[in-house]
Amino acid sequence: MILTIIGAILILISSAFLFLGAFGIYRLPDVYNRLQAATKSTTLGAFIGIIGVGFLKPEWFLKTLIIAGFLFLTNPVSSHAIGRASCLRGVKPYSGTVVNKTQEFEECRSTKKE
């Protein structure tokens, strides 16, 4: 009984994480931001959901642990490959995320002189 309650709570948390990750795919402005939403949130949601199914059926726990381990190993590697490919191809980052302190300093100093 207690295992069923734990599994249900884990599956609800996982559905919230998966939905927020997929909504971030639609909403964020750039490849790198989208990649961050995709890999972090979706990997955590998938891990929690598969372990939650293992809690609901305790005799399936070993196989669900194997599937969760495979996802946990392969998903960051593929997302790293996508990020490296888009960086080597020359996809520009979104202009709101680039921090250039020296340019800001020069602008500030030139306005102060006048």
Partner: peptide, 30 residues
């Protein structure tokens, strides 16, 4: 761009894996 589409594909495969595991619980077959 093309990496955007690849990110969408990657998200869809992860969602599908979780959906397959949960459907296995829903149909109650090992």
């Amino acid at each position: 761009t093309a990496p955007d589409r690849l990110v969408g594909m990657s998200t869809m495969t992860t969602l599908t894996t979780v959906l397959l595991v949960f459907l296995g619980y829903f149909f109650n077959r090992y």
